[in-house]
Nucleic acid binder design. Structure first.
Length: 261
DNA sequence: ATGGTAGACCTTCTA
């Protein structure tokens, strides 16, 4: 079972690149973030032609998440529970009906910048809701993968230049604490399971030559329940995707699980 | 050096 997560930064602006990548990587499940379109404008047929079932939770212009799966999906949940007034499309979850099923979520956590605005408390409140929901999912004691762009730099080694992020919402103590609290519910970070080296980044800003200077950060994660972590086989961070034609500012993270074991 | 780039889309907001 190969599960990929990728913030594509507009699926329509980048469709040829996304299609080229997904055919080469051939994941069974793909979690996309920042599709930046409503459900009706998601290029569903292009992925169906490659053998994927498609679920989307989109919105106009901003945010939006999708799940692609070669297996049927059920139990689809659109939106994170806990606040009926939240209109931002950042959470999509489904049960992947493989021979050994696994529940997978595509997550786009709020960025939270700039500090001093309502955006940062929104981020922290969203994180708390995610923690509450993750607690309920973990109680099911089944294979589970919470994948996506968490918009958090957990540790200094997850940034090439940590000092540059001191005043950024992604590196605030409150953001990092919320990420740790989520993990400490009993989730394993695939990056740690795979012993990827420090400097394995997933995002480089388009500005100021960040990619050319390798001024990256690691903010995209695949967090696994114990029942999934037991079956972890490998992780691959697709750094090369940052050099593709019209690249996203994020690169895909791909996790292989041996669900037959 | 408070810049720089990218996407949606109407003019500025988000990242």
């Amino acid at each position: 079972m190969r599960i990929a997560t990728w913030n594509v930064n507009s699926v329509n602006a980048r469709l040829p690149t996304v299609l080229e990548w997904i055919q080469a990587a051939n994941p069974d499940v793909a979690c996309f973030q920042e599709i930046k379109c409503v459900d009706e404008k998601f290029p569903r047929e292009a992925f169906e032609d490659l053998g994927y079932n498609v679920e989307t939770h989109g919105q106009k212009s901003y945010n939006g998440v999708a799940l692609l799966s070669k297996y049927p999906m059920s139990d689809v949940r659109r939106g994170l529970p806990g606040d009926d007034t939240d209109e931002q499309a950042r959470y999509l979850e489904a049960l992947i009906e493989a021979p050994r099923p696994i529940r997978v979520a595509s997550i786009y956590l709020p960025n939270g910048n700039p500090l001093g605005t309502e955006k940062f408390p929104y981020k922290l409140a969203w994180f708390q809701r995610l923690q509450n929901h993750a607690r309920e999912l973990l109680a099911l004691e089944e294979p589970l993968a919470l994948c996506g762009d968490y918009n958090v730099i957990p540790e200094a080694e997850d940034a090439r230049n940590p000092a540059a992020w001191t005043d950024d919402a992604l590196f605030q103590p409150e953001s990092r604490e919320a990420f740790r609290a989520l993990k400490w519910l009993g989730l394993a970070d695939s990056h740690e399971l795979g012993r990827e080296p420090a400097g394995t980044f997933t995002f480089w800003d388009y500005q100021a030559g960040a990619w050319q200077r390798d001024h990256g950060i690691r903010i995209d994660f695949a967090l696994l329940s114990p029942q999934a972590a037991d079956r972890f086989r490998a992780i691959e961070t697709h750094r090369d995707a940052r050099d593709m034609e019209k690249p996203s500012d994020h690169v895909p993270v791909v996790v292989d699980l041996d669900l037959e074991a």
